[in-house]
């Protein structure tokens, strides 16, 4: 798994590449703790290069979503492949994490 981050207007973009599973999810959790514990901007996870996510990855998304809400920041996911999007839907996470098709859609939230 690779984590890259960039900024666009008032949005922090976190791109995850590879697999977000029970092995790699704790790495992302640590990265979030070090970089996004008190998010200064809205946050989007760019999942265009994410191949796989399991419940361990969803747990990290739930925690980040709660952290963002505590700081009144928006948190969303963009460009997730269909099978990734489906697990968000099965989890009911799409009711509080917007799944956007593009960064422009995220900026328009």
């Amino acid at each position: 798994m690779l984590i890259n981050t960039s900024q666009k207007e008032n949005l922090q973009i976190v791109s995850i590449e590879g697999r977000l599973d029970s092995l790699t999810a704790p790495e992302l959790e640590l990265w979030i703790r070090d970089n996004l514990a008190s998010p200064e901007f809205d946050v989007v996870m760019d999942f265009s290069n994410l191949d796989y996510i399991s419940s361990a990855g969803l747990r990290v998304m739930l925690n980040l979503s709660k952290a963002a809400a505590r700081y009144s920041r928006k948190f969303s996911v963009c460009q997730a492949q269909d099978h990734i999007r489906e697990v968000f839907e099965i989890s009911g996470f799409d009711s509080f994490i917007p799944l956007c098709d593009s960064l422009d859609d995220v900026l328009a939230l």
Partner: peptide, 21 residues
């Protein structure tokens, strides 16, 4: 309960939920 709002959601049990699905 996958219909709960963010404040009440916990991550436990999602794994078996996926497998059931």
């Amino acid at each position: 309960d996958v219909t709960l709002p963010l404040e009440e959601r916990k991550a436990g049990g999602l794994g078996i939920h996926f497998v059931n699905h």
